[in-house]
């Protein structure tokens, strides 16, 4: 029973972080702060949800797969965020040539 309560708690916390990430995108003024909000909140949110699910997991393999999902998602998320920020930085300096 305790495990169920804990995982429920973890998953709701995760969802809350996702919601805050989405709020971040809507509210923040420019690309960089939006990227920041999105990557941080979603990365942590996913981590919490994975934690919550891991508690329910029956075998170690499932926990391993969940952890792999989280690591790959976090890695690719932050790389994408870096690339977008890098591209935006370059684009922001040179004048806009295309609409």
């Amino acid at each position: 029973m305790v495990l169920d309560g804990l995982s429920l708690l973890a998953v709701t916390a995760g969802v809350l972080f996702f919601v805050s990430g989405t709020l971040g995108i809507l509210r923040f003024p420019d690309v960089f702060s939006r990227l920041h909000a999105l990557t941080k909140a979603d990365g942590l949110g996913l981590g919490l949800i994975v934690l919550g699910l891991a508690l329910q997991a029956t075998s170690l393999a499932v926990i391993g797969k969940l952890a792999l999902v989280w690591i790959v998602a976090a890695l690719s998320g932050s790389t994408a965020c870096y690339l977008m920020a890098h591209f935006e930085l370059e684009r922001a300096q040179e004048p806009h040539d295309r609409a």
């Binding site: 790959v72 890695l75 690719s76 790389t79 870096y82 690339l83 890098h86 591209f87």
Partner: peptide, 18 residues
Amino acid sequence: ELSASPVLSGLVGLLAPV
């Protein structure tokens, strides 16, 4: 045009075997 930034090649280096 993406210059092969170190972060991207780092990620690809990690992800390709996976």
